[in-house]
Write a protein that binds this DNA or RNA. Structure first.
Lengths: 178, 178
DNA sequence: TTGACAAGACCGTCCAGACGGTACAGTAAG
DNA sequence: CTTACTGTACCGTCTGGACGGTCTTGTCAA
């Protein structure tokens, strides 16, 4: 679409995520993001005219990426696999990444709590879809919530569970999901 | 120990939680808390000499309250009930409260991410204890994580699950916990 | 009983710094 | 000529916190 010289947009987005993760959600200032991205503040404001637009882009990119990953996992998955199982596997992989991938969310809701609404409605959508595809509601609830718990641990960079325990959890969930 | 004239300390703490919930984590300023608590800024600073101390008090009170609730639930609980089942019931009750009880956490970690460490170590402690008391590790993992998911939904004020679904989830977990 | 006084609890104002955002002149590439 | 920036200077606002003053309460000697 844009960016002939270089892809500043993505650099900036990545820099914002890094700054949020490393220096904390409250320290996500435009100056910090700009210098981290190797871009001047003027350049940042050229790409994202306001801080809110930056946050919005962060949210939208995140949601789009997850949606695409889910879609391709669904088509590329094992044929006999249930949609719930696919969801569990994909989410577990995401949570297994060493870096908390979305701690910028904290910055976003600190900036304006309304940034949560698109995320919430996306989650709701995914859950409703899963509900239509899963015969056993109890199994769905348990698995979905446990995955949500895993996501939360990743978000808060919690080390309550060991790697082995995480693996055992996932395999148990897959067993429950059938 | 303190507060001869009135109990400003608790009023302030409650006000801080209210402000964080209603106006968002980023808007938790001393001025806002003071006016909400019906106290001047000077008075607030008298009780909590710095913003960090306020946050710390919020964290400590929260942890202490949960610990006490857990302890009394353990002693007052049904005799045949497993510790895991007690934990599930208590946490579910907490999550059932209409107001997100701890959204000030976002404010705290925006202020300084280190406020998470006492919370994390507390969680770890609780989990380790549960691990020593629960024979079935798989059941523990699934239940603990699902509860964590429930907590996260409450924290983010998410409405993905209906009340009925939450109830079904809890009963399923209790079934798994045995 | 009373008056002096100390301490505790709180008020209201002020300030330095940080932040988001604007403005604008310059420049290198296509 | 346009796009995509860089760099600098600047403004208005908000925030944490310091500070000095004020009102209330308890204590205790006379």
């Amino acid at each position: 679409m844009k960016a002939r010289r270089a892809n500043s947009r993505e650099k900036i987005l990545a820099a914002a995520a890094d700054v949020a993760r490393e220096t904390g959600p409250g320290s996500l200032s435009l100056d910090a993001v700009a210098s981290r991205a190797g871009v001047s503040k003027g350049g940042l404001l050229y790409n994202f005219p306001t801080k809110a637009k930056l946050m919005q882009a962060l949210v939208e990119d995140y949601l789009r990426a997850f949606e695409q990953a889910l879609e391709s996992a669904r088509t590329a998955g094992v044929i006999g696999e249930s949609p719930l199982a696919t969801y569990i596997k994909l989410s577990a992989e995401h949570a297994e990444e060493s870096k908390p991938s979305a701690s910028w969310i904290f910055s976003a809701i600190a900036e304006d709590p309304d940034f949560l609404t698109p995320i919430k409605s996306f989650r709701r959508q995914v859950f409703e879809r899963l509900k239509g595809e899963t015969p056993d509601l109890k199994a769905l609830l348990v698995c979905y919530l446990a995955i949500e718990g895993l996501r939360s641990m990743n978000l808060f960079d919690s080390d309550v569970l060991s790697r082995d325990e995480r693996r055992l959890l996932v395999s148990s969930l897959l067993e429950i999901a059938g």
